[in-house]
Amino acid sequence: MNIFRLGGDLAHLLAIIILLLKIWTTRSCAGISGKSQILFALTFTARYLDLFTNFVSVYNSVMKVVYLAAAYATLYLMYVKFKATYDHNHDTFRLEFLILPAAGLALIINHEFSIIEVMWTFSIYLEAVAILPQLFMVSKTGEAESITSHYLFALGSYRALYIVNWVYRYYSEGFYDMIATLAGVVQTVLYCDFFYLYITKVLKGKKLQLPA
């Protein structure tokens, strides 16, 4: 565990908390893509199948449970409790366009052809693109609330910090995982345009509005 990995995990946790708090305190999930949240729940479910078979540390197990619980709590808030506020007209991304290629690729390019390993790989590929419905929704409406921008910034920072962690681990331990690293780079690149808008607009107190 190094500072970049810990920072990544905490950014991820912060993103999840920001999202839950936003929905809970405003009693609304307007502007949030339920499709992306479904993909994140699917990601965590597929990745943490090893929760009971591969013990790494108490820290890892606790975080896995927290991520899983938060993912399903978010889905519950969006699709049950505050369903009326869910902006489904703008959340039109087709999930099968992301799930099927991620599943196909996981079957072909993986570290080992076993159920747990293919599911882990699927989760890595799916996570890389899981934010697309959310970014698509922001581009469709042309804007995002500040709190949604903070959520996206924290969520994007998480994988960016993991990349630094992987570079660090490569040099300090000789550890590398090509699948996670390449997918992590793709994931981070998807946020670049958003990062630019966040830094140039939101941090200066303006609303995130896309150029017309």
């Binding site: 991820h12 090893d50 790494v56 896995k64 570290h111 882990w120 962690n165 995982d177 996670a180």
Partner: peptide, 10 residues
């Protein structure tokens, strides 16, 4: 390499 994949990250 045929070592078991080691996923110690989240």
């Amino acid at each position: 390499d045929d070592a078991e994949p080691d996923h110690d990250e989240l």
